[in-house]
């Protein structure tokens, strides 16, 4: 797959319009080339970074809680009824 087709495929994957392709074609290959700089390093003895040792992975119990600020969430929606948002159809 050439880079032009690759960019079109990525635009589709990240839900951006194909019309954007021209806008990104100028810089995208240069940046990808720039990324390739890391090939100069000898990495055969290195392991990929996973996490910092001072941070322990912790899991909390999944306890359901009542969210008390519903009115603030509803402020982000123009219409609501009871505990439900009223939305317009996403399609025309």
């Amino acid at each position: 797959m050439n880079l032009k087709e690759e960019i079109k495929k990525i635009l589709e994957l990240v839900r951006l319009s194909e019309k954007e392709e021209k806008k990104y074609f100028e810089h995208f290959p240069k940046i990808i080339d720039f990324f390739k700089k890391i090939d100069e390093l000898d990495l055969k003895d290195e392991k990929p970074f996973f996490y910092l040792e001072h941070l322990k992975t912790e899991l909390r119990k999944d306890n359901p809680e009542e969210f008390e600020n519903k009115e603030l969430i509803f402020k982000n929606s123009p219409k609501f009824k009871g505990n439900f948002f009223i939305t317009e159809s996403p399609i025309e």
Partner: peptide
Amino acid sequence: KLKGNNLWDMYEKTRT
């Protein structure tokens, strides 16, 4: 949010 012809189109238009 921008409206689209279908759900996929709505995502694209909104994000673009």
